[in-house]
Design a protein around this nucleic acid. Structure first.
Length: 582
DNA sequence: GCCGTTTTCGGCCCGACTGTTTTCAGTCG
């Protein structure tokens, strides 16, 4: 079993949970949490690196002790400390910490007094009415716990950004119509354009908070008011998503926006900088002593710690503060930078529109070129194209290119990578196309080494210019397949193959972390819609969000290039050998 | 558990709301 960074992070998170249950030093606990976060976002595969005999790079917040534990978990999948902690309390107890309203202190109390060690135990004692007798608990907390257990068992977790948007935007519009409200912004991970969001964080500015809070709680979709005070409130919507509102005075907008956009780690880092400078940053402003010196705009908050404004997508404490200090923040790619789209389907396979309709839809969205890349024959379920049907489509594209103004169609294919890394159509056919996109659509469960070999071999085919949805994951539905992504990215770079950032909101594949890895390795990324109908092109906006989180600039993105340059970059093998590499 | 041209020991971000407390701990973001 390969140990991934996420597995090491999970081990550290569990250690932190269990230490918390034992009331250990909170800063020791924070050290484990911090290490878990760093590992999750790390752009190298630690276990693989260590197995190759390489040393762990020096990471901030990870000292000698945690380094040793990383090595131990990487090698064995667990470590002595975790094993010891697991012997001390039951396996299911960390699950209880995930329930809203239950923290380490109360979970510990439940365990000590009632031997509650799992969700099932908790449900039982709550139903028997034994919870309310505990010190610190009462009838209300007993009822809350019962509700929380059933909600947890029915699993409403994180929402895809595109799904959250459907709830968030109308809610924000509704709040904006409150008399006396000046601004309503959706902050939090939504503003950072994270691929999934756990809740919605609304920030409103108004001279009087009460009317906004009241209107927030009175929204038609509110199923339950979780909390409500003079400046903030939390509700759960009928959809299951939680929404929080915070109201601040207008002059605090910048400080509050910064505070409620996060990420937490970014905020902590900024506050630490402020502290070093003798300042205090909170959601109301930046203060020196009792005097407020900034906070009306976000720019003023950053300026108070001598930094330029940092785009929300970068605020994860992944090096953006250091980059800002050196004045080396990336100029992040924008939707308007995209000149074309290199992955789209038609009704020849599983799309719902004709080639012409797709071309016109792309043109309407200000794209100058569009590659038609239907599936290949192996995808029998969607009537994948064989050589004859592909040739027929090519004729149609030639005709349309002669007729249509303002959009150029490229002849392409999304060709299946077969089990052994060979492609689903012969080279002689692929050679006739403008663009060959290769993709894995089967055998997702091959062992890592074989899956990696398979993809690397496909990349070696001289006709392949783009690797579609490189990890194969579907957010919340299918895990990525096991593959050495760094090896894939390096091979792609060497072969002049671009990596797709599939913009479909269910995919967003590459991830932000892998986008940045591609950038670091010098490989180009192509932000494609994978549209199956006209409105599918609207997904490009989601791809842009993900790309920005991955620090990508216009120069890092293949389809920001004008058509002439694109043609040079995706030209045939012989030309490519002479031309500059992307 | 980490970290340090102010420190190798003593710090480590900040505030709001709930429930049960009679003055605040626990939880959350």
């Amino acid at each position: 079993m390969p140990v991934h960074n996420a597995d090491i992070a999970a081990a550290f998170d569990e250690i932190a949970d269990r230490l918390e249950l034992q009331s250990a030093n909170p800063f020791r606990i924070r050290a484990y949490r911090n290490a878990a976060r760093i590992l999750l976002e790390l752009r190298i595969d630690v276990a693989a690196k260590l197995a190759e005999g390489e040393e762990l790079p020096k990471l901030p917040g990870i000292g000698a002790d945690l380094s040793a534990k990383i090595r131990e978990v990487a090698a064995r999948g667990t470590c002595a400390l975790l094993e010891k902690l697991r012997r001390e309390m039951p396996a299911g107890i960390t699950e209880l910490l995930k329930l809203p309203g239950l923290g380490p202190t109360r979970v510990r109390a439940l365990y000590d007094a009632l031997k509650v060690g799992s969700l099932a135990d908790l449900q039982r004692v709550a139903r028997e009415g034994r919870l309310r007798a505990l010190p610190g608990f009462g009838e209300k907390s007993e009822a809350k716990v019962l509700a929380a257990v059933s909600a947890h068992l029915s699993k409403v977790q994180r929402f895809q950004l595109a799904v959250a948007a459907q709830y968030a935007e109308p809610y924000a519009q509704y709040l904006r119509r409150t008399p006396g409200v000046e601004e309503v912004v959706i902050a939090g991970s939504y503003r950072r354009r994270k691929e999934t969001v756990g809740d919605l964080d609304f920030l409103a500015t108004a001279s009087r908070a009460e009317p906004v809070i009241a209107r927030f709680a009175g929204y038609a979709e509110v199923k339950e008011v979780i909390a409500s005070g003079p400046t903030k409130a939390s509700v759960r919507l009928a959809s299951g998503i939680q929404a929080d509102l915070r109201v601040v005075p207008p002059e605090s907008l910048g400080a509050a926006l910064h505070y409620f956009t996060g990420a937490k780690a970014h905020n902590i880092a900024i506050r630490r900088l402020a502290q070093d400078a003798g300042l205090k940053v909170n959601e109301y402003g930046v203060f020196r002593g009792g005097k407020r010196i900034a906070g009306t705009s976000e720019e003023s908050v950053y300026a108070s710690v001598k930094l330029p404004w940092i785009p929300p997508e970068l605020r994860e404490d992944r090096g953006e503060i250091e980059a800002a200090r050196r004045d080396e923040l990336p100029r992040l790619v924008e939707r308007a930078d995209l000149r074309g789209d290199l992955h789209a389907h038609t009704k020849a396979t599983d799309g719902r529109a004709s080639v012409r309709e797709m071309a016109l839809a792309a043109k309407a969205r200000k794209l100058q070129y569009l590659a038609i890349t239907d599936h290949s024959q192996r995808q029998a379920m969607v009537h994948g194209l064989d050589a004859a049907r592909l040739a027929k489509q090519a004729d149609e594209i030639d005709r349309l290119n002669g007729e249509l103004q303002g959009i150029t169609l490229l002849k392409g294919i999304e060709v299946d990578i077969l089990d052994d890394g060979a492609l689903d159509l012969p080279d002689s056919i692929l050679a006739k196309l403008d663009l060959v996109v290769a993709a894995v659509h089967s055998r997702f469960n091959l062992p890592r080494a074989r899956q990696t070999e398979r993809v690397l071999r496909a990349l070696e085919n001289p006709h392949v210019r783009l690797l579609a949805h490189p990890s194969g994951r579907l957010i919340g539905a299918r895990e990525p397949y096991e593959v050495d992504m760094q090896a894939v990215i390096r091979k792609a770079r060497a072969q002049g193959v671009a990596l797709e950032l599939n913009a479909h909101p269910h995919r967003l594949d590459l991830t932000d972390v892998h986008c940045r890895m591609a950038k670091d390795e010098g490989a180009l990324v192509s932000i494609n819609s994978d549209a199956h109908a006209a409105e599918g092109f609207d997904a490009l906006e989601h791809g842009i969000g993900q790309a920005r989180r991955g620090w990508l600039e216009k120069k890092d993105v293949l389809n920001c290039r004008p058509l002439s340059e694109l043609r040079r970059l995706i030209g045939g093998g012989a030309r490519r050998a002479r031309g500059p590499r992307p």
